[in-house]
């Protein structure tokens, strides 16, 4: 962690991102998934785009207040925070359910040999050990 402040130039922000990454639409598959989930929910009329922009703007402001240099590279993290909140706010799911599914996916990953596709099974929910 460096003492970066949000005051650098736009170019500096850009220069911190390796060229190959700059050219790609999404840096990681999860960014694409979070993005697509949001658009799909909007297309279904779960929220208006204005509601979405407000939710995302709020997350970005909160992150800046926490000291995130907000150079654009953490953008999809803010995006994910915002869509989780909005989905909860709209009553589509709640924090406990999200947590239960995360733990299930974690167990699914643990029991899947490295390199195989990770698939969620009912057993991943059963008898969840609470360590």
């Amino acid at each position: 962690m460096t003492n970066e402040t949000p005051s650098g130039t736009a170019r500096e922000a850009l220069d911190r991102i390796p060229a190959a990454e700059r050219a790609r639409t999404f840096q990681e598959p999860w960014e694409a998934q979070a993005f697509a989930i949001t658009l799909a929910l909007h297309q279904r009329g779960v929220f208006t785009w204005n509601e979405w922009a407000t939710a995302l703007g709020k997350e970005i402001k909160a992150a800046q207040a926490r000291g995130d240099p907000d150079t654009g590279s953490t953008y999809y993290l803010h995006w994910l925070n915002a869509i989780e909140r909005l989905v909860e706010h709209k009553g589509l799911t709640n924090a406990a359910t999200l947590q239960r599914y995360r733990e299930a996916w974690d167990r699914a990953a643990d029991r899947t040999p490295h390199g195989d596709p990770i698939v969620l099974a009912p057993e991943d929910f059963a008898g969840g050990s609470t360590t």
């Binding site: 799909a40 993290l77 599914y101 990953a109």
Partner: peptide
């Protein structure tokens, strides 16, 4: 075994729930 990062777990959880409920 395999490993999913915290953020990957979050996105997979979100997608699975919304898929099961028929939202996506």
């Amino acid at each position: 075994g395999s490993h999913l990062s915290e953020i990957q777990l979050r996105v997979r959880a979100l997608e699975t729930i919304l898929t099961e409920k028929g939202y996506v």
